[in-house]
């Protein structure tokens, strides 16, 4: 379907049409920042902030919740164990391009050897309305380098660009087309709308300059060369190993699995929850041996996952340049700065 136009006056109507048979989640203000929250009331709907700059947590939380039940059990034995694969039809409204790329990364990671039915069940009933950005939210972002300023070719249903009094709406799937058909407010985009969209993206590209001193395609190789660098120790001296960076990362998917007992002390649930390779015990084994005991090896592991490992395993970026890890680091550690510094390391070696 060709791009459509939705007048801003019709936006509420559009959201209402989505709410009819979906849970709708959208960006709203949360303190001085923004968070994706469920739209449950007319007040919520009025609080949707399609002008948000950056959400605290990425929309990952709807596909891979912070806590998720894998199995329920009736007692100690394995006889009464039931898988609990749950998914609510959901529309995620206002997903920025870099987060669309991050979802593509999660899709790839969770599809592999073997597929994860818990993620895939949620993903299958989730529709995504993307949202174009005009500029960087802060100095930690570097989407231009990671090639995530524009939406990926697929993996979203609609993609909205703000043209002032109207939304330019690209259609990425049949589900997206159905969303358009259900709401009366849409009309085909005309040539001046197309021109305005082109101008928007041009202005975005001009506003969002590259920040790495090299082409990001060299990032995995630069990281490989920096493995023995003193840089990791230098940066890790500031690191508290708190795990904030991994909690807010849109592509982190490591987890812990634990049993939660009910009040009868017999039945309960096996739950997986987000975990962090930055926590000291993450790579500890029974008996106390810890294979990434020091903060520098943990920090290096995270940065390598972001810049190299995930890309090599999934073919999708492990870092989309969103800058959340740096925005929320209590020690002010910036992955952009680290990526910049490894170039200097490589230069020093020559």
């Amino acid at each position: 379907m060709l791009p459509q136009i939705l007048p801003k006056s019709k936006f509420d109507e559009f959201v209402g049409s989505l709410s009819a048979d979906n849970r709708v989640v959208a960006p709203m203000a949360k303190g001085p920042a923004f968070a994706f929250q469920e739209v449950q009331t007319p007040e919520d709907q009025a609080a949707i902030r399609m002008d948000y700059d950056l959400s605290i947590l990425p929309p990952k939380k709807f596909l891979m919740p912070q806590r998720e039940t894998l199995l329920s059990f009736g007692g100690r034995g394995p006889e009464n164990v039931q898988p609990q694969v749950q998914a609510k039809p959901t529309v995620i409204l206002g997903v920025q391009p870099m987060d669309l790329h991050a979802i593509a990364t999660l899709d790839a990671a969770m599809a592999k050897d073997p597929a994860d039915p818990y993620y895939q069940a949620k993903r299958a009933v989730t529709k995504i309305v993307g949202l174009n950005v005009a500029q960087y939210a802060n100095d930690y972002q570097f989407m231009a380098d990671m090639d995530t300023l524009d939406a990926p070719a697929s993996g979203w249903d609609l993609f909205l660009t703000d043209l002032g009094d109207r939304w330019f709406v690209e259609v990425g799937s049949e589900a997206g087309q159905a969303m358009i058909t259900k709401c009366a407010g849409f009309s085909p985009a005309k040539s001046d709308d197309h021109a305005a969209k082109v101008a928007f993206d041009k202005a975005k590209a001009a506003a969002c300059s590259k920040r790495l001193p090299y082409d990001a395609r060299y990032l995995p190789e630069l990281l490989a060369n920096s493995y023995d660098s003193l840089l990791w120790n230098a940066v890790a001296r500031r690191c508290f190993s708190c795990g904030s960076c991994t909690n807010v990362c849109p592509t982190c998917y490591c987890f812990d699995v634990q049993d939660k007992l009910g009040l009868d002390a017999a039945s309960g649930e096996r739950v997986r929850s987000w975990d962090s390779c930055q926590l000291r015990v993450f790579a500890e084994v029974a008996g106390g041996e810890n294979f990434r005991e020091h903060a520098d090896s943990r920090l290096r592991h995270r940065v390598f996952r972001k810049g190299k490992f995930i890309l090599e395993r999934t073919g999708k970026p492990g870092c989309v340049g969103c800058g959340r890890c740096s925005t929320h680091c209590v020690a002010g550690i910036s992955i952009l700065e680290t990526f910049q510094q490894i170039a200097d390391e490589a230069a020093a070696e020559i």
């Binding site: 050897d113 975990d275 790579a283 294979f291």
Partner: peptide
């Protein structure tokens, strides 16, 4: 020896 939580190449431990 590692503390595999999933055995499925996902949990990262």
């Amino acid at each position: 020896e590692r503390r595999m939580k999933c055995g499925l190449g996902k949990c990262g431990h």
